[in-house]
Nucleic acid binder design. Structure first.
Lengths: 344, 344
DNA sequence: ACGAGTTAGTAACACGTGTTAGCCAAGGAT
DNA sequence: ATCCTTGGCTAACACGTGTTACTAACTCGT
């Protein structure tokens, strides 16, 4: 099996035709005349030799690598504890596979942001990229907008004209808060999913505020806290809420992953869910339904988001879409489980 | 910014030298004489134009793509709910970045196994691959062993001579079971992490049996159940254990992810952890410590495994290692939390 | 018989890089 | 004066493919 590379030249030689013919036959080029017998000979020879075209050579000449990049922008630790990444990857993989495209994962350390984004595409390693949970400063946004690199954001960025795929975070958070309000809660705390630089975070908090205002409930500023993606930050936020001395009967946590930590803090404080405190999450990660009690949450269609992002990017790459006008918003859904209780 | 590609030819022209010189200077080729002034001119020109070498062209001529593949072999659903994937990816990313290597994720549907494994490497998309949680039939193993594709397994496969990175599953499971036995438990159930085709599953069960035998405790066959990676399967397994009518005071679950589901089933049955049943997991996923109660478990060094796998693969690719003799075993660690209680 | 059109296929270039063999001038040794 | 070395650089090939322009043979209508 230490066989040397099989090239199209070998196939041509075995089939007794030219390399051009091999290429025309195997790529099934339309509008060209090759006799059925020759076709057969070529296909036969290719199978016999186990010919697989060299992807790099194809990429060089066609100027398409048939690969897209998934660019992660967060810290090492946040990637390792991201409960959402598997769904995103699995969504990406299914759509990519349908189009015979590969996925390159890359990681841009925040330090060298602006330049690093381009290197992959400039080096022609990928045909386009998906930026996950972007947090961009203005110069980086502008650079990406004017650059000639098909880019799709997963999650939107304020003030950017880049195509993106996202949910309506404001509306989704309103749903969550309204649910708590409908259950009679008025003193509600809010823990964000991430620091305010990540657009989704202030949006979700805003949704919370909107619902509260509409119901005539006042928001205690000391009961609004910004977490940082992981359970640990949720734990810390909840601790600080409990220590604030403000009373609250329910908490909206804008991320299930953060809620896991928040829940642990409540437990440590001897508080029972939903008996003492109602808790609603956001995302519906796979573990939410197995939580104790099963976590009521807002379902984010993670795989669908990834799939849409992938299709959108492919359309962009193939020039089938106008890059200025592509913003896809998917629906969220309130999943009622058992972590919230009505106020008597 | 719609600037055309900048090639080494453009750099050469601007610097007033030949393309060869550009290549020699920028790649810092040793043992060749270029005057310092010329060097400076070339570097200056390259910076000015923002030259980035075309990766595909480099790959074509150097026969190195500078990319490795992470090949996932499980179902769509299992990938989406894999609590370990983020750590593996983050581990891979850090090591890969150090060596300026990219990571391509691919997914081999089980149907077309044997052939699909090779396509990536045969197409020269990657220089080598890491197979995660492999489950290979004999022909696939043989094919991989004799093929000329650097391959590293994450998790071992019985009867294979391929290089791998793994933990000592038997010993680790013994640790877990011994811990329960030391607490005085004798009637212990066992839920595997996966179906028996995945080598780690029978190994962990074997470790459980070893510890039981050594302690003179008998294993009730109806208390051994094989789960299937996700919480749902853990839920089902625990249900069937409870319905078996066999008495047990503790359960060893060979995967935290599975344990999440098992725990939910116990809760539904009105059983309390650790009051009624002691539960020990395996893996130490990020959510284990925030579980209620915090889950006692065996820590698997996921990121370290990924990093070792990556380094090993790179050594293999660069011919610095003998592919026949490379098996790396990392240590596991018992993490005592609060899900197990001594029998009175 | 002869030009026009079709059929079946090929030679040759392009993609952008790494690398080998070699060229030329200047200087030193014989 | 001739030969050899050495520093500094370049022409030319190779990597494996897609594609365009072109040719040679063959058919066909008049």
């Amino acid at each position: 099996m230490y066989r040397n590379r099989v090239t199209s030249r070998d196939v041509a030689k075995l089939a007794g035709v030219s390399r051009t013919t091999v290429s025309l036959v195997l790529n099934n080029v339309q509008g060209i005349q090759i006799s059925p017998e020759t076709r057969q000979k070529v296909i036969q020879a290719a199978n016999e030799l186990g010919y697989v075209p060299d992807a790099t050579a194809q990429a060089l000449v066609s100027r398409r690598t048939k690969a897209i990049g998934l660019v992660l922008t967060r810290t090492h630790h946040h990637i390792a504890t991201d409960a959402f990444l598997p769904k995103i990857i699995s969504g990406l993989l299914t759509t990519a596979k349908q189009h015979n495209i590969r996925i390159l994962i890359d990681w841009v350390e925040t330090e060298h942001q602006e330049s690093a984004y381009f290197e992959l595409a400039r080096a022609k390693r990928i045909d386009g990229m998906i930026l996950s949970t972007p947090r961009l400063n203005d110069s980086a946004i502008k650079a990406l907008e004017t650059a000639d690199i098909p880019t799709v954001l997963m999650g939107s960025v304020a003030g950017s004209t880049l195509p993106f795929v996202d949910v309506d975070n404001v509306q989704a958070a309103e749903k969550a808060a309204s649910y708590l309000l409908d259950l009679g809660h008025r003193e509600i705390a809010c823990i964000s999913n991430a620091p305010p630089e990540y657009t989704a975070a202030p949006e979700r908090v805003q949704g919370f505020r909107n619902a509260m205002a509409r119901a005539g409930a006042s928001v205690k500023e000391r009961l609004v806290c910004f977490a940082d993606f992981d359970p640990e930050s949720g734990y810390r936020c909840m601790k600080s809420l409990l220590e604030s001395g403000e009373r609250f009967t329910a908490v909206f946590v804008a991320s299930d992953n953060v809620a896991i930590g928040a829940k642990a803090a409540l437990r440590e404080a001897g508080l029972h869910i939903p008996g003492d405190i109602s808790l609603i999450g956001f995302d519906d990660i796979p573990w939410a339904m197995y939580s104790d009690p099963p976590l009521t949450t807002i379902r984010l269609p993670a795989e669908a988001l990834a799939q849409k992002a992938c299709t959108l990017l492919l359309n962009l790459i193939n020039g089938r879409e106008n890059r200025q006008t592509n913003r896809i918003i998917l629906e969220t859904e309130l999943i009622v489980r058992k972590s919230c209780k009505a106020i008597q």
